[in-house]
Design a protein around this nucleic acid. Structure first.
Lengths: 238, 238
DNA sequence: TAGTGGTCTAGACCACTGG
DNA sequence: CAGTGGTCTAGACCACTAG
């Protein structure tokens, strides 16, 4: 039951329809009861799917009206745990800058590697991200070699690291922790972002948890936020 | 039923015990069934409370083990919709820099005021935030005058804006949207943060939604992240 | 194995929004 | 008013964890 709960199917379908534009901003999704009938489930299950969408900022709920598609501004929206390709959508592309293999001691992601990870070598790779042809982000990522045999950052499914983890290695991303700073880019980052070393950069350290306990994906993001800022949304107390 | 759902009591009690240290980092909370008995509710209700805590990063759930108190690092952690005083806790203080009244047209928070808000004047105030005596954040906030009669930013309950909204005006914060950039501080901000104009600053624009439909709290934060970065955590797919 | 959290059913009553 | 989402009950079966 684990991999495919029913609410996931509903969540996936609705999200796909939102991202594809089948539901536009301001549109009201089918009511909870309608979805119950459509998917032959109870409201609890439908609401679980809608809760996820709401938590990720795709919709908001209006008591007595319905679930309404939100305007997720033109921004990178990274804080809701999705890869670059999935949040930015069309107009996005990326390029592999390098991939190498080294020991964890030589890396620094702001999080300590786990014991399990220290038993393995570390694969480090750097990607440059573009929106509409302009570089907006540089991402340095690391993952334990032993859980991704034959890993090649140049051959990602749909250009997505996370999709590749899922399809090739059955690894799912289950969450993230982020530490966010403003800083100045060092030379190599500045040139990859095509900005001067006096341009302030958003510096985000992320640790993604995976479905394999004790193993994480570490990323450091350098974002030029002058055109595309990050965005996020949260809701409290239901 | 609206103001005080049962899950809120459970949520409040657990959160209080976590913040006060009754449950330390790594501790396992009472099991869901135990909480059911203690509060005479069903698991659905208990889980709703735990879902909230998990979403705010206070605990994580370990299948087969329990709900475990998380380490919420020493950081400003603003991204989870709480005021400064509540997230930083002891060691935090703030100072009112100014408060004034003007029209919305003269403000710019990156979000458009609503029609309801435009019918009212706007109260603008600026606070300087300290951790351990050092300024780490400057916050410029705005709220519609008509929903907070007699407002005085110099006389907040416990020094907390949000607590004041709740206790004096029965206004609850129900969510937030944030836009995050890295930038250079202009002169006045730089001096309030006691940094040079060449120090990169985290620039966060926030719109908090309130329990009063159509009315928001707007804030612009300027953070010196060199010592206290922002942090956040997210979980996906349950 | 007993206990935990994860998912789900099939109901119920309520408060809110709209016509 | 009928329909919507918000909350809640009282069950159930499952997968995971630990002793």
């Amino acid at each position: 039951m684990n991999a495919n709960p029913k609410y996931r199917r509903i969540y996936d379908a609705l999200k796909k329809d939102i991202l594809s534009g089948n539901y536009a901003v301001g549109d009201i999704l089918p009511s909870e009861n309608t979805l119950c009938a459509e998917y032959s489930v109870t409201r609890t299950t439908v609401r679980k799917a809608l809760d996820e969408l709401e938590g990720e900022g795709y919709v908001y709920r209006h008591h007595g009206k319905g679930s309404i598609v939100k305007d997720r501004r033109k921004s990178l929206g990274l804080l809701s745990v999705k890869g670059f390709s999935e949040t930015v959508g069309s107009g996005a592309s990326s390029r592999l800058v390098y991939q190498q293999e080294l020991t964890w001691e030589m890396t620094s992601f702001g999080f300590e590697p786990t014991e399990k990870e220290l038993h393995s070598k570390c694969i480090l790779f750097c990607r440059q991200r573009f929106v509409e042809g302009a570089p907006v982000m540089v991402e340095v990522s690391a993952i334990a070699k032993e859980i991704v045999p034959g890993f090649d950052a140049g051959k990602f499914t749909d250009g997505s690291f996370f999709k590749t983890l899922s399809s090739n290695y059955l690894l799912e991303i289950t969450g993230s922790e982020q530490i966010i700073r403003a800083s100045m880019p060092e030379g190599s980052i500045a040139s990859l972002l095509e900005v001067g070393e006096d341009t302030p950069i958003l510096h985000v350290r992320v640790r993604y948890s995976t479905s394999k306990p004790g193993y994480y994906v570490y990323s450091t993001l350098y974002c030029n936020t002058s055109v595309y800022p990050l965005s996020s949304s949260h809701k409290v107390r239901s």
